[in-house]
Amino acid sequence: MKLAEIKRALLLLVIFMVLLTVIYPAVVTLAGRVAFPGKAGGSLIQQNGVVVGSSLIGQPFSEAKYFWPRPSATASDGGSMPYDPLASGGSNLGPTNPKLVSPDPGTGEVSGAAKALRDSGVTGPLPIDLVTSSGSGLDPDITIEAANVQVARVAAARNMPAPKVQQIVDDHIEGRWLGFMGTERVNVLELNMALDRAG
């Protein structure tokens, strides 16, 4: 009786394994490959035949001529750099942790990022997303405010008129889905690549 039950359990595991871990993923993979090959493959962006990134995964930018993304915790999570997809994750710093925000200027993740922005000439209130790290450490987007406060710096570094840079930013705004879902945002990698193309 008990032995028969054990046999049943094992056979059921075997047939479920075939159905759920071979056939099911294979069907999804096949459907993806046929209908949405680019998306199934990671939404890769190519330039002259070379993969330069994914439109879904952020990249690190620190030079003045590029728009900066949000801080990323992947470097402190054991990654080789900020925005290292092999070490995805957030800072996990609690809201009162001095490593996140401390009264001493320039220490802590938030204050450090704020100082870099102030040094680059940003005045007025800083957008919160530019000084906090995302949950994935790979956030490809920044808010519109976060892009706007960087326009002057980028324009100066590129010797481009600010309205032209602003125009490129505006062209890259992605709205809310159906007008209400999510946040209005700008994809930093795509924006920076558009700037490089514009000169």
Binding site: R70, G90, S91, N92, L93, P95, L100, V101, V110, S111, A114, P125, L126, P127, I128, D129, V131, T132, S133, S134, G135, S136, D139, D141, I142, T143, G182, T183, R185
Partner: peptide, 14 residues
């Protein structure tokens, strides 16, 4: 510290 907005630490912009 002169930073405005909700708690975005650990959250995605989208």
């Amino acid at each position: 510290q002169g930073i405005a907005g909700p708690n975005m630490e650990g959250k995605e912009v989208r």
